[in-house]
Amino acid sequence: MNQAAHKIVIDGVSKQFIAASGNTVEALRDINLTIGENEFVCVVGRSGCGKSTLMNMIAGFLKPSAGSILVDGAQIEGPGKGKGVVFQNLALFPWLTARKNIEFGCKQQGVGDERRARISRELIDLVHLTGFEDKYPFELSGGMQQRVAIARALAIDPLLLLMDEPFGALDEQTRMGMQNELLRIWSSHKKTVIFITHSVAESIVLADRIIVLGANPGHLKKEFKVSLDRPRDRLSPEFVELEAEVQDALD
């Protein structure tokens, strides 16, 4: 395949950490993966399989011990530069209102007041936060905070969107609602998305492709292409069958 057609090329990436005990811990070994433009990829694995480490390397927070990661053909130099991240604990800035959180990235990039206000207005509308834009994070429900975090990452019009188990802390009902929201947002703002989760069902609801990671050390175990039409019916035979297959690969 032609390398230029890929958004992200992960080539022979390994990552070792020095643990507190002084021992070297191998978190990831020889990961090879390519991700296409506007592809929605879910990375599934048990805790300790290195899925967050992989995301942190793509985000530029960590450097691979070996191998390389290219985004649009260029080596990752560090965080930022259009790599939007939604964190597991959201990491909203608590001293800023929902609107100011969403505008934060644009402000750092020196986007003018008028354009910034237009971007945040559109996103507030898109993630259904109208009426709550001037609330502080502590005044918002978990699902609303979630939507602020997604809007904040989208506001910089990122090259790619990295999401690290963003719905992990939500109750099942809210979580399913957020999954639909995310798909709705993604369909109107096409992005390359890498979504980390430990929920097999979540990965099948969302992804174009599912990457299953194994543990000790983290390695690529299996890939599944999900070709079901969206919105996907969790109770359809195809869904259930795929769920069993992915679950099988996980175990």
Partner: peptide, 10 residues
């Protein structure tokens, strides 16, 4: 992660 979030926004 708050510091990382800030870095992700340059």
């Amino acid at each position: 992660t708050l510091l990382r979030a800030a870095r992700s926004f340059d």
